[in-house]
C-alpha cells in the first residue's frame, strides 16, 4: 500500500478540515478491518488516511443524563463488551457487535466502521435500527442527527457528504427494571450463517421491545440485515407485536411481516425463498429472547 498520508487528529473539527481539504481523496480510518483489507485487495487507494481513534468523543462510551447511552463511533467491539451498564441495558446491540469477526477483529472493529462500510449484511446495524439509535454526523456545516436506518443508501454507499464523519451513536433511555411493577425492556440480535463462527450473515434480525407492568408490549422495533440492498426497519413486524403479550399468534404475525418485507437476492449463500423464510424465523426467535430479557413470560 503506497498511499502518502496518515493523520491522527485529536478533535472532530480538525478531522472535518482534513476531510474537506482532501476533497474526497481521504478516508476515515477506525479499526481498519474493512478499509485496510479493501486497500490490500486493491479495491481502493485513498491518498490520506485519517485515524479517528485518538479523538475522545469517538473513543469513549458514556451514559447520558437522560439514562441513554452515547457510544463513540470508533469504540471497538471488545470494549463494548467490557462496559457493564451498556451490556445490561442493550445486550442485543452488544451481542450483534460481538458477532463481527474473530477476537482479533473485535480488538479493532467499530460500530462506525460497520455502518459506514455500507454492507447490507453488517451485523450491528439491524440491532442499532431496532434500538432506535441515531448517529451524530459532523461536517463542514456543523452536526446533524440521523436515524441509523437512513445512513446506508445502497450497498457500499452512505448519506455522508464529503467532509462528514460519524461521531457517535445515541441510544434512548431504557426502563431500568429496578421497579418490579414498572415498564421493562429488552433487545436481541440473531444471525444465520452457514458456519458457527467467522462468516457473513445470510439473514440478521434485531428486535427491541418495551413491556408495561402487565407484560403488554407498548413499543417495538425490528431491524433486518442481508435481505435487501440496505438494512431494513420493518414497521409491520413491530406493529404485529405492539399491544400483545407476544403470544404465539403475535409472534407468527411478526415473522410473516418480516418475511414479506425481505427483498433478498439469490446468491451462493442463500436463495430468495430461504432468506425470506429465515427472516421470519429469526425475527420470531429474536423477539422471544428480547421478551425473556425484558422479564416477560417468554
Amino acid at each position: 500500500m503506497n498511499g502518502s498520508g496518515y493523520e491522527a487528529p485529536r478533535t472532530v473539527e480538525e478531522t472535518v478540515t482534513l476531510l474537506q481539504q482532501a476533497n474526497g481523496a481521504a478516508r476515515v480510518l477506525a479499526g481498519g478491518t474493512d478499509l485496510l483489507a479493501q486497500m490490500k485487495m486493491g479495491m481502493t487507494s485513498p491518498a490520506l488516511l485519517i485515524d479517528v481513534k485518538k479523538i475522545p468523543e469517538l473513543a469513549s462510551i458514556e451514559q447520558t443524563a437522560d439514562g441513554g447511552f452515547r457510544i463513540g463511533a470508533a469504540v471497538c467491539g471488545a470494549a463494548l463488551a467490557e462496559h457493564a451498564a451498556l451490556v445490561a441495558a442493550w445486550p442485543g446491540i452488544v451481542e450483534a457487535a460481538r458477532l463481527i469477526g474473530s477476537e482479533q477483529i473485535q480488538g479493532r472493529a467499530s460500530l462506525g466502521g460497520n455502518l459506514c462500510n455500507g454492507s447490507p449484511a453488517a451485523d450491528s446495524v439491524p440491532a442499532l435500527i431496532a434500538a432506535g439509535a441515531t448517529c451524530t454526523i459532523a461536517g463542514p456545516g456543523g452536526t446533524r442527527s440521523v436515524a441509523v436506518e437512513d445512513v446506508i443508501t445502497a450497498p457500499g454507499k452512505t448519506c455522508l457528504a464529503t467532509g462528514e464523519l460519524v461521531v457517535d451513536f445515541r441510544l434512548p433511555p431504557r426502563p431500568d427494571g429496578s421497579d418490579a411493577r414498572a415498564a421493562k425492556a429488552g433487545d436481541a440480535y440473531l444471525r444465520m450463517i452457514p458456519r458457527s463462527e467467522m462468516d457473513i450473515a445470510i439473514v440478521g434480525a434485531g428486535v427491541s421491545l418495551t413491556l408495561d407492568e402487565a407484560g403488554v408490549c407498548t413499543a417495538a422495533r425490528v431491524g433486518l440485515g442481508a435481505v435487501a440492498a440496505t438494512p431494513l426497519r420493518v414497521d409491520a413486524a413491530a406493529a404485529a407485536l405492539i399491544g400483545t403479550t407476544l403470544d404465539d399468534a403475535a409472534l407468527a404475525a411478526a415473522g410473516e411481516a418480516a418475511s414479506a418485507a425481505a427483498r433478498p437476492i439469490d446468491d451462493k449463500r442463500g436463495t430468495i425463498a430461504y432468506r425470506k423464510q429465515v427472516a421470519g424465523v429469526l425475527t420470531r426467535r429474536a423477539a422471544k429472547i428480547a421478551l425473556a430479557r425484558a422479564g416477560g413470560n417468554g
Binding site: 496518515y6 480510518l29 479499526g31 481498519g32 478491518t33 485496510l36 483489507a37 490490500k40 488516511l49 485515524d51 471497538c76 471488545a78 477476537e103 482479533q104 477483529i105 473485535q106 480488538g107 479493532r108
Partner: peptide
C-alpha cells in the same frame, strides 16, 4: 492490551 491482526493495522 488488545488482540489484533497486525496485517490490518498501520
Amino acid at each position: 492490551g488488545r488482540l489484533i491482526c497486525s496485517c490490518l493495522a498501520l
